[in-house]
């Protein structure tokens, strides 16, 4: 049953990212997986093997699109070619919702291919929300924006990250893809309490949750998606589920990718928290 207007897919359960080292396993063994998240840009192409594999996956699994280069927060307008290709893919996958990051990465037509942090200003929130609305109207699919990990903060910021996220999603009237690992990483890099972040965001807008691992360096933490989820991140996940209710959850593992089974087993650990939440809701 839908939890609210932005979390219409509570039955989606636990998914994992579709990654090329697992293609053979998935297509030959057909493991039971609630859903797969694809990186949209990997399939915004004209033809060839990637689209063939995607079509085979679509025959058997639910797929949700996740983008890495829409750059809602870039001051320049959206790239029309990007939008055209993305819409083609949306039609192909019939993704029930679409996610990308609350960040920027291009300026004057030059792309950094990175998820660069936003200055938390009202001007940036207004520009970002406007672009989210435009993209949603063009693609005709619900959108949820993901909080990113960051390693820098700007002098010009006028609010906290969670206040900025709230400002953007309220203005755009869109959902949140809450990445609890990113909250943890940024909290360590910027000295804030990650629990406060989760308490302060509008829980009713949380459409999806990301969990992942990261790498710890001497003076900062990098969001590398190459390790299992650590306990403090699971604790944040539990808090997020407690606030947002049963929410589609996705484990990201993008580097040093282990076997399919290992990745899936790690993702399924989320079941423990989802079951607790379901029990609490029933009581």
């Amino acid at each position: 049953m839908p939890a609210n207007a932005f979390n219409n897919f509570t039955e989606y359960g636990i998914g994992i990212g579709l990654r090329s080292p697992h293609y053979h396993h998935i297509l030959t063994r057909k493991p039971v997986v609630d859903w797969f998240e694809i990186i949209s840009e990997n399939f915004m192409i004209d033809g060839g093997r990637p689209l063939r594999i995607l079509d085979q996956i679509l025959e058997q699994y639910k797929v949700v699109q996740h983008g890495v280069s829409m750059y809602f927060g870039s001051a320049e307008s959206a790239n029309r070619e990007h939008l055209r290709r993305l819409k083609e893919l949306v039609r192909r996958t019939k993704t029930p919702w679409l996610t990308d990051h609350l960040c920027w990465g291009s300026v004057d037509g030059r792309y950094t291919h990175d998820l660069l942090p936003m200055p938390y200003t009202f001007e940036a929130a207004k520009i970002t929300a406007q672009k989210i609305r435009e993209v949603r109207d063009f693609l005709e699919v619900p959108i949820a924006v993901e909080n990113v990990s960051s390693y820098a903060e700007f002098h010009v910021s006028e609010m906290t990250e969670w206040e900025f996220l709230t400002e953007v999603v309220e203005r755009a009237n869109c959902g949140i893809l809450l990445d609890v690992n990113n909250i943890y990483v940024s909290s360590q890099n910027h000295n804030f309490n990650p629990s406060t972040y989760i308490s302060e965001i509008p829980a009713s807008r949380v459409a999806q949750i990301h969990i992942a691992g990261h790498s710890k360096y001497r003076k900062y933490i990098l969001d590398t998606h190459d390790h299992p989820v650590i306990d403090p991140v699971w604790e944040l996940y539990a808090q997020a589920i407690q606030r947002a209710g049963h929410t589609a959850t996705l484990l990201e593992w993008d580097d040093s990718i282990p076997s399919f089974q290992e990745v899936h087993d790690e993702a399924l650990k989320a079941n423990k928290f989802l079951a607790t939440e379901s029990l609490a809701a029933a009581v």
């Binding site: 001051a75 320049e76 300026v107 030059r110 660069l116 940036a124 700007f154 010009v156």
Partner: peptide
């Protein structure tokens, strides 16, 4: 510093 100026500044440094 507005959004565009900040993004140009940072892009120059990053690249």
């Amino acid at each position: 510093m507005n959004l565009m100026s900040l993004q140009r500044q940072m892009t120059r440094a990053v690249m």
